[in-house]
Design a protein around this nucleic acid. Structure first.
Lengths: 257, 257
DNA sequence: TATATTATTGCATAAACATGCATATAAAAA
DNA sequence: TTTTTATATGCATGTTTATGCAATAATATA
């Protein structure tokens, strides 16, 4: 193991090793990185704080996918999400081709699609596929790729490539955050890329979003709000926050939850 | 069973084993995880406190009857399939790349993959992906394509194309029928194509199959039995039916169900 | 009820941990 | 450059954690 001059470099190495080997021990890292166990422990503490791993007595483990945002998010705000999703389905007509993005709100849209709707859905989200697998009139196409267990989305080069060859009428975008100045942002770099391609290849962009995500921002930018066609949100969303979107010519629907 | 140093790791393993086997006993866990029963009991107490299981005298049971997110146990899997699947997993080693085909038996193999196995799984079956989404050590790659709702498999040009670019160590083939003269056959034309490519691109072909499918045939041929490396089936399978395969040099494992 | 199995509790020990402190090093200010 | 400041690191310390063992209590089963 090369001697790393900077602590940051060493921490990166720890993350790398953890990913490679599934677990790390303070003792082992101390030897391999040529620093005392104390330093390693301090590193691990920092890395835990910044969300890169979970500490355990003796070392550290990857952040468990079972405690991942996904399964936790699944049950949050369900009623609001269902109401929003139902409203979104009204914007979809038969014979259209629809992108459905990953994310719990977009998943709910898939679940609420009426039985008599005759459309083709293209998605990178296995949960969306499962939800639609019993729908009699919807043709489902899944983009291939590597599974991101945290978000339950397929990502990577393959996914993006497959996506770039398809054009859709409507894109149901799953977003982490929406901000009038910073636009659409998300927490995962790779997914940001993917969402950008989705947007580029769709005629209409619909953003279903719960009120609590309005006015917030995440690290990775996807696009400005100009690309958005519709926003569907809760009636509890303050008028003031929505004004910039209305001015940008976005059609906004509010549902009571 | 890999030596797992961290208590947290051990507890995750307990959860995993409980999910797989429906129940665990302190005694059994003590042996399998190489710690005293005292430690196991302490683990179980913690896990009960954190809501992962319910304790009973002698061991523990799952908390909610079926805490599987989706259609996990939709197929009533016979004991035979589970036994076969468990046997198949013994043929897989860490760091290998595995194709897992669609079909209920192959799906069961995915479900039975042990906690500590570190492999990459490539599949065209969304149910397999869902089954593996909570597995901490398996990297899952899904082939894209159009969903065939009957078989819950992705098929089509896209799938085949993606598949043709990948080589695997082992292919777990889901088969409808196996006949000593007609070879491997299936009921769906497109899937036959796909399976053929899978076989071509794998070093080893493992066929898990229940006894009732032996000696039967379906419309679309996939390959002759020469390509098969292993067959895992039930001990109830008559010796006579298996003779041709043995003569073809195929290694056969029988499990009691 | 009697007996065997399983649980709990307290205790001992070794490993891992947090903390304060001293020192060394790097970055910033003079 | 020199001085100052902040950061990073290792060591000594007392503390916490993980674990197995033994004694006792609770529970299942004959």
């Amino acid at each position: 193991m090369r001697a790393s001059k900077f602590p940051e470099e060493r921490r990166q190495q720890i993350i790398y090793l953890l990913k490679q080997e599934g677990k790390v021990t303070a003792q082992n890292l101390s030897v391999r990185l040529n620093v005392s166990e104390d330093t390693i422990r301090r590193d691990l503490k920092d890395l835990e704080l910044s969300g890169h791993l979970t500490r355990v007595h003796g070392g550290a483990l990857p952040r468990s996918p079972s405690h991942s945002p996904y399964s936790a998010r699944q049950t949050q705000n369900t009623n609001a999400k269902i109401s929003i999703a139902k409203e979104v389905t009204k914007l979809i007509n038969s014979d259209q081709v629809i992108f459905i993005d990953s994310g719990t709100t977009a998943l709910e849209v898939a679940r609420q699609l009426p039985f008599d709707l005759n459309i083709t859905v293209i998605t990178n989200s296995p949960p969306v596929l499962i939800a639609l697998s019993e729908h009699p009139n919807i043709n489902v196409i899944l983009l291939g790729g590597v599974l991101n267990k945290k978000s339950m989305a397929l990502t990577g080069n393959t996914t993006q490539n497959a996506l770039s060859k398809i054009r859709a009428d409507i894109c149901i975008l799953g977003v982490c955050s929406l901000h009038d100045e910073l636009g659409v942002t998300t927490t995962d770099f790779e997914e940001a890329e993917l969402k950008r391609v989705m947007i580029e290849n769709s005629s209409e962009i619909i953003v279903p979003i719960t009120a609590d995500k309005l006015g917030t921002a995440a690290p990775f930018g996807i696009t400005t709000i100009e690309d958005i066609s519709h926003i569907v949100t809760e009636s509890t969303a303050p008028e003031k926050i929505l004004t910039p979107y209305q001015k940008a010519g976005i059609s906004i629907t509010k549902v009571k939850s």
